[in-house]
Write a protein that binds this DNA or RNA. Sequence first.
DNA 1: TCCCTCTCTGGAACGTTGTTCCAAACTAGC
DNA 2: GCTAGTTTGGAACAACGTTCCAGAGAGGGA
Lengths: 222, 222
Amino acid sequence: MATRTRNTDDALSAERIVGTAIEMLDEAGEGGLTFRALAARLRTGAGAIYWHVANKDELLSAATAQVLAGAIAAEVAEHAPEEAIRALARGVFDAIDEHPWAGTQLSRVPVQPVMLRIFERLGRQIQALGVPAADQFTWASALLNYILGVAGQNAALARAVAPGTNRPEFLGAIASEWAGLDAAEFPFIRSVAGQLPAHDDRDQFLAGIDLILAGIAAARGQ
Amino acid sequence: MATRTRNTDDALSAERIVGTAIEMLDEAGEGGLTFRALAARLRTGAGAIYWHVANKDELLSAATAQVLAGAIAAEVAEHAPEEAIRALARGVFDAIDEHPWAGTQLSRVPVQPVMLRIFERLGRQIQALGVPAADQFTWASALLNYILGVAGQNAALARAVAPGTNRPEFLGAIASEWAGLDAAEFPFIRSVAGQLPAHDDRDQFLAGIDLILAGIAAARGQ
DNA sequence: TCCCTCTCTGGAACGTTGTTCCAAACTAGC
DNA sequence: GCTAGTTTGGAACAACGTTCCAGAGAGGGA
């Protein structure tokens, strides 16, 4: 019988822990990641995990960083600044759309290393647009905050959708509620209720980015 | 000795519970509100609270709603649409600036009754701006997501500032970190590091609102 | 006045969580 | 093959949200 040795394959490491954590978060959502469940899947104890990872916040940060790595790595040098900003925003959106728990993490913690890199990319393209130095910080922050807002709402929605039901069904139910609101108090909500079930979150998100870019262009033109 | 009667003053009620919860959240932050501590301050048991409030989520929602009530109640009919949007956004910002825990709540849960009212106000002003019906939902959502993003980041920052230190000191420390980053990798962050400690969050937030409004104006003009 | 019913109370208890602790198992260098 | 250092994993701790339930208080008929 095989001797129980500590070989490289089943050895614990920060990478393996983070990778397994991402698996569990993707499968069961934010509530699905506990140190006990993680230890069970890794066939070890909770204490062993703490040797490689300081605490749950660090674990979530590392998982979020890994999931966003692709969006940061994407090369955007060849594009015009506006297109580069769109591409970057699109990358972040797609990452959090695929891993909604990462959206929670991003909107919950202050700017951390991953988001600092995104902020850097955004700012560089803002500079490339010829924005005055005094406005660069403010306008890059506006873009970042918008992205983080969408990230948080996406995650909140994913959390709210009951495990059994699917998204169109859920949005349809909300649209019905909206349509049934008081006509005098909620005329606007009622008027857009019909657009809710069919609307594309991604398109809507990118339209918001374009709106901010148009605002920058307008402010620059004067 | 006085007979232990149940008079109106010390009677438990949803209002009194929510009011006390807001007090505790303001004093000790989001971690300061537990059912045990709340029960202790109300001189009762945790079980009694559950007779008036379904669970902690509902309690936080009610607290957030109360804290945002002022921002919604403000009458804005006399202003031009753009100024009305600014006033509304300003009201929300000031509320979450004073009660950062409310920002966490807003960015953590999907649109709830309070935020639906704000969305309604935003949308009505967007309509008043003469935006085409097809764009109203998208652009009102852009404004809302931006506001929620700032709300979340404000709350995250408030949570990160160590109880002992103050805000300028904390921002100064981050600015120092930013200034010390690799020059080749973070040119933009380094260039704006100096603006971080002195910048006004509120002004920056409102500049972002103006940017979106300018974008709407530009898109409308074509 | 008594009693029954319904509302409301508050303290104990349950299950789960993040985290800490520590004895034992393993690995590597002399 | 001893020893010093690293790594493991299971037990234990403190805290949390929530549930449970015996009983106190109030009000309305008999």
